[in-house]
């Protein structure tokens, strides 16, 4: 039952992922990877920013240490999300369950899991993860296979899908809580400041997320602390 509920909640995430991973498949093949290499990367990584950066490093024949550090920095935000999911977990989340669930912590899966009012168990999380994994991998396979024949206008239009999903996650709770609006605005302001100034030459997109997210949520926590039961 919990597993089914997870699958159902994962479907919109999976459909959103289809379009983004489609773009990844397209780019991977034009960077010189085979269809199966692109698909394998998506199956084993399940991360957008990390994979796009990794692809760039592969294409430029970058060093292995550079690859490791880039992945660490870009994906460091998942550590914070995993802590939050850990806090939200019930007693079914055993060590083997954690070893498996850890594979599937993404921005959207995290947001859905921690956005629930009740605690989450391993079966719910397994369902919530499996559908997006299928969507992400399938989208890459499709993009890598047929991307070349897709008109640019369609491919470009799909580029906004993931951000539309982000809006659907943050706007409904923000409507009810001005403190959340404040945190979103601070995070967006930091991100825009870096993007529109020469700072973007020295701060990578992965670091931008870390700085903006930590500063904005810390400011929220200091100014508007939550009640602890």
């Amino acid at each position: 039952m919990e597993f089914k509920r997870g699958i159902r909640d994962g479907i919109p995430i999976a459909l959103g992922y289809l379009s983004v991973s489609f773009t990844f498949g397209l780019m991977a093949v034009s960077a010189g990877l085979t269809v199966w290499q692109a698909t394998l990367i998506s199956l084993l990584n399940l991360t957008s920013a990390g994979q796009f950066a990794g692809l760039g490093i592969m294409a430029a024949s970058g060093g292995f240490f550079e690859m490791a550090l880039a992945q660490f920095i870009i994906n460091l935000r998942y550590s914070l999300m995993s802590i939050a999911v850990s806090q939200k977990s019930d007693e079914t989340m055993t060590t083997p369950a954690r070893l498996a669930i850890g594979f599937g912590i993404t921005d959207e899966i995290f947001a859905v899991a921690t956005g629930k009012n009740e605690s989450v168990g391993r079966n719910y999380m397994a369902g919530l993860i499996i559908t997006p994994v299928i969507g992400w991998t399938l989208g890459t396979l499709l993009g890598a296979s047929v991307g070349n024949i897709l008109p640019d206008i369609i491919a470009d239009s799909l580029g906004i899908a993931i951000y539309g999903m982000f809006l659907a996650i943050i706007i409904p709770p923000a409507k009810k809580d001005m403190k959340i609006v404040f945190v979103i605005l601070v995070a967006a302001a930091i991100s825009c400041t870096i993007f529109y100034t020469p700072l973007s030459n020295i701060i990578s997109s992965g670091f931008t997320v870390i700085i903006a997210a930590v500063v904005a949520s810390a400011l929220g926590a200091v100014l508007f602390p939550k009640e602890v039961e």
Binding site: F166, I170, V183, F195, A212, A213, G220, A221
Partner: peptide
């Protein structure tokens, strides 16, 4: 209390900075 609050605000901060300004240039 600080950690609990930080974790509560984190998803909105992460998605906020990932969405803006990237969404405007995504197409």
């Amino acid at each position: 209390r600080f950690i609990v609050s930080l974790l509560y605000y984190m998803p909105y901060a992460v998605l906020g900075c990932m969405t803006f300004p990237a969404i405007f240039y995504s197409t």
